[in-house]
Design a protein around this nucleic acid. Structure first.
Lengths: 234, 234
DNA sequence: TAATTATTTTTGTGATCACATTTTGAAAAT
DNA sequence: ATTTTCAAAATGTGATCACAAAAATAATTA
């Protein structure tokens, strides 16, 4: 699986080249189709998406500012290697941020949006049934995003997305070695809590969703996975 | 006060042009020397720092991903306008993130680093005594950064810096209209709590530092300031 | 055969150019 | 005097080129 793993995405006219490159790379990283340590070359990507180095470089710069890529001393760019410590840091931060985001969304939520959340959750369940991990992952993200963006003032969402980006490559590794990802679904709980506008219950559902989902990986399991994937844990 | 308000910063050799542009713009925004709404032109900046559009564009892309700049539909780039709602969102998130960062730093703190924190705090007090707002601001940030980066696994710091970047322009406005910024100093408390490795007390000190500092602005005062600065509050 | 050196290729970086869009400012019309 | 129309200037964007550094490959030596 390489950079072009995902279908080329549709490109609305008016979208700039660097924006397109950014979205495409972003999505590839987010669902874990670029392996950590794999080094990306500007010209390679440019050629793959039939453009030139300039816009690709801009996309890479943005992704590095978003924590999705790391620029080495050699100036080479790669997907950062995961470690058990970093993983733990990411998950605890994700829980903190998303609980906060959920709370601050509650006062702005509409019934209409709650209905939309229910639809997304349903679609996700179907994807899980089809064992379509990538789609399930994207729908899971869409669920969370749809919840948090009820709050019109968006300063948290970019940070949450940054966390997702940084966790993405690990999910890719997990999907390769665990065959079928175990999906937790606390979304129904969250939806019920939302209908009651119960901030605490919403936050609790999100917390559980995360801690039982990606947060459920035990340290030993993580280290084992990373070892299997050839990532020196040192 | 324009883009070149700050002295050109020293540029270590080996630092790329886009990196230099990024640092310089970043600092200018962080201490509030670029006015919100002021639109930045790529060529203008490039000329001002004697380079060309390409690296400047990369710097601007990064800053937009960091939340420091916003790209309009016209593709013009500007420092985002502040609103009372956004301000409240930023401050509450800042408090949440920094308390968390502080807690997770405690297990890694060394006496040596605590001493360094004490020195920074002293320097900040002196800057405040000189009524040197910009320096005091930078030293305050250095205090917080030095604390949080005790944790070797850094995923929070970039987000905290993003918040600072987004609050920067408001501080610029405040400094213009309030003459002398009121600096709160809960740093001594934080230092004492650190010596005891008391996570709760450290988090409490940070929380107080923020809520009594920038968080102390009342909604009415904020709206008034924004009005004075010609920012339509609508 | 293994290690070292030299050569070739690849890669990141930044300046420049051409093009399309937008903005600005002047001229004309209402 | 205000609005509208039109030309000129400015701006964002992306491709291309030249250069230096790094990586990969080939040749040489121990």
């Amino acid at each position: 699986m390489g950079i072009l793993a995902l279908e080329p995405l549709d490109r609305p006219d008016g979208m700039t080249t660097h924006e397109y490159a950014h979205r495409r790379l972003r999505q590839a990283i987010m669902v874990g189709s670029i392996r950590p340590g794999e080094s990306l070359t500007i010209r390679g990507i440019a050629e793959a998406m039939e453009s030139s180095p300039t816009p690709v470089r801009e996309a890479l710069r943005r992704l590095s500012s978003e924590g999705a890529l790391r620029v080495l001393d050699n100036r080479r760019i790669m997907v950062p290697r995961m470690t058990a410590d970093r993983f733990s840091e990411l998950v605890s931060l994700r829980s903190l941020l998303e609980q906060h985001a959920a709370r601050r969304a509650v006062p702005h939520i509409t019934e209409r949006r709650i209905d939309r959340l229910a639809e997304i959750d349903k679609a996700q369940d179907e994807a899980i049934g089809r064992k379509d991990n990538a789609t399930a992952l994207l729908l899971n993200q869409e669920f969370h995003r749809t919840l948090y963006t009820a709050n019109p003032e968006q300063v948290i969402m970019p940070m949450v997305e940054s966390i997702w980006l940084q966790l993405g490559p690990f999910l890719g590794i997990a999907m390769e070695h665990v065959a079928q990802l175990y999906f937790v679904d606390r979304h129904v709980e969250a939806i019920e809590a939302l209908r009651k506008r119960d901030e605490d219950a919403v936050a609790a559902a999100i917390k559980a969703d995360i801690s039982e989902g990606i947060g459920g990986f035990e340290r030993a399991a993580i280290e084992n996975l990373l070892r299997l994937a050839g990532q020196s844990v040192a």
